[in-house]
Computed example of a mutant assay.
Amino acid sequence: MGRAPLSLCRKVQGRALGSSGMARALLPLLLVIVLIIETQCKNDTEALKHIVHNKFITGRIIVKREDRCQNGEYSSGVQCCKKCNRGFVKNISCPTDINKHCVPCKNGKEYIHHENDLEECMRCSSCDSILGLEVAKNCTPEQNTECTCAKNYFCNSSVPCGHCNPCTICESGVIEKQCTSTSDTVCGMKETGLQWWATALMIMVVLLPIAGAIFWYKRKWKNRTRKENLNEVVLKAVASYENVPLIHRDIDLSSHVAEIVEEMTLQQVKTFVRNHKVPEPIIDQTIRDYLNDTSEQKIKLFQVWYQRHGMKGAYVNLIRSLREFKMCAAADKIEEKLKAAVSSCQEGGQSHGDDTEQSKTCTEESRKILLSVDSADLSKTCSSSFEET
Rank of each mutant, 00 (worst) to 15 (best):
N152I: 09
I61W: 06
A200C: 10
L201W: 13
M1Q: 12
E115H: 14
I98T: 06
T185K: 01
D44G: 09
G72I: 00
Q346E: 14
R226K: 12
R224C: 05
V234H: 07
V206E: 07
E73I: 08
E387S: 12
S384H: 07
K220R: 14
P160W: 02
W197F: 13
V269L: 02
K177Q: 15
E262I: 09
L131Q: 07
F88G: 02
W216A: 12
V269W: 03
K55D: 12
E242H: 14
G87H: 04
G77M: 07
V103S: 15
N231Y: 09
V159Q: 13
H256K: 09
S375H: 12
D44R: 15
G212W: 05
I369S: 00
S351P: 03
V244W: 01
T182Q: 05
L208Y: 09
Q70T: 08
L29R: 06
T389H: 07
F325Y: 08
I319L: 10
I283Y: 03
Y315A: 03
S183Y: 04
T389P: 00
C121A: 09
C124N: 02
I251D: 05
A376H: 09
G132Q: 04
I130L: 12
T286W: 04
V316M: 09
V206A: 04
V174Q: 01
E142G: 14
K137T: 09
F302P: 05
V34W: 07
N138D: 12
E142Q: 15
R123A: 12
L17I: 11
L207P: 00
N292T: 11
A200Y: 06
N223P: 02
N223L: 07
G193H: 13
M189Y: 10
W196T: 11
K277Q: 14
D377S: 14
L8G: 07
V12M: 08
L338W: 03
K42S: 14
N85Y: 04
P104T: 07
S384Y: 06
N229P: 02
K227F: 09
P281W: 01
I247A: 02
T286S: 04
L253E: 01
C69P: 05
E110V: 07
N165G: 02
R3C: 12
L131N: 08
V32C: 08
F386Y: 11
H113F: 07
Y241F: 03
I283S: 05
P166L: 10
G162L: 10
K277R: 13
C9E: 14
A47C: 06
E191S: 08
I319V: 15
Q285E: 13
N152P: 04
C147A: 01
S172Y: 02
P104S: 07
I260H: 00
T294Q: 03
K42Y: 11
C164W: 00
Q13I: 06
T39I: 10
S181A: 15
R274L: 12
I334G: 04
K337P: 03
R219K: 13
